[in-house]
Design a protein around this nucleic acid. Structure first.
Lengths: 204, 204
DNA sequence: CCTACCGATCGGTAGG
DNA sequence: CCTACCGATCGGTAGG
């Protein structure tokens, strides 16, 4: 009985988060009402407030759960590959190979977080660095230290890499919203590691 | 007299767009009410509806005006430099040297456009390609044709370049929200043109 | 007839 | 978890 209750509660909570995740990704924080989430889940609006203190708590739970998923991708990349460059490459592949509704959470969490309260914002910001950006930065810095990568500012290089993935985090553009094919991922990695330049064009 | 009337109307319209631009950039489309815009401008809410059919028309006008500004940046880059590589470089510099409230419009327009009606969406999407993305793509394609740039997929390369600038289009991150220093712009261009790689790490 | 608005309020819906 | 609601505020519009 107690087990059943526990399972049911967790199940409801997870179902709310799963439904809301997709809807938030498509419509943004303010563009989605609690009523619509309730209808999608098939419960009453008050039912959501039983599992989550308010709209902000629901959104934050989805964002933090996704940070844990990203952190696990970095774990697996670190275990499967030895060189920093391969580890970075694997992280990029794992992120871009996610279904579109998951990929968009990177962008969503960061941008819509500006609409939340200060405690929620700073808490997410800290977790975002600790569980994801800081770890990617550490991989890149390690590659620079070992001589695999050029010694540029690691922070800027990290954001350049993450930025190159951003166009695939938005479902807005019809030609980009779907799964990026393997060839696109290869091109992005190729540009990041080897660049677009051919000749030395330092003079105008 | 007629001149004064005309100037006043244009002035009001421009002032509404300027105030709303900053507020939309900080709070998103749904996060900002017409009442707040009116208060910021110092007129009544009905005054805004005299100049713009509705909220959507106001947002679209801001987005399209910014596309024209981006298009002019490309014009000036094409006139000032001969090589495709330098032209691309100049476009990147002009975009990132804009004040933060202008830079964020790239991201804002694209993402919040999903909340608008289908006609507004498709109209912006077409103008976005015609006036900006398509022209950047053309510069990159020209560089590939002339042998200045590696022959990768031009569309993917364009989005990689624009993506690298995206982290500087969001005021969310405190360490990135402000003006990117010249050195950051240099690092981005360095990575795009020359890449991060040093050794050949094709084996695992 | 025109412009550039204002005070007040409409029908609905938000988060709680 | 539901039904039944609230204070407030939403985008938009009336007559003057």
């Amino acid at each position: 009985m107690d087990q059943d209750k526990g399972l049911e509660q967790s199940d409801s909570r997870a179902r709310i988060m799963d439904e809301a995740k997709v809807l938030f990704a498509a419509r943004g924080y303010r563009g989605l009402s609690m009523r619509e989430i309730a209808e999608a889940v098939g419960i009453s609006k008050a039912g959501i407030y039983y599992h989550f203190r308010d709209k902000e708590a629901l959104f934050s739970a989805i964002a933090h759960r996704y940070l844990d998923a990203l952190s696990e991708m970095i774990d697996s990349s670190e275990q499967a590959h030895s060189s920093a460059r391969r580890q970075v490459e694997q992280v990029v592949r794992l992120i871009l190979q996610q279904p579109a509704e998951d990929r968009t959470l990177v962008r969503l969490a960061n941008q819509e977080m500006a609409l939340l309260s200060e405690p929620a914002r700073s808490q997410f910001s800290a977790a975002y660095r600790e569980k994801f950006v800081g770890r990617v930065r550490a991989l890149i810095a390690k590659g620079m230290a070992s001589g695999e990568l050029r010694r540029l500012d690691p922070e800027t290089a990290t954001w350049a890499l993450l930025g190159m993935m951003y166009p695939y985090f938005t479902p807005t553009d019809p030609t980009l919203g779907r799964f990026p094919p393997e060839s696109v991922i290869d091109v992005l990695l190729c540009i990041f590691f080897d660049g677009m330049g051919l000749d030395d064009q330092t003079t105008e």
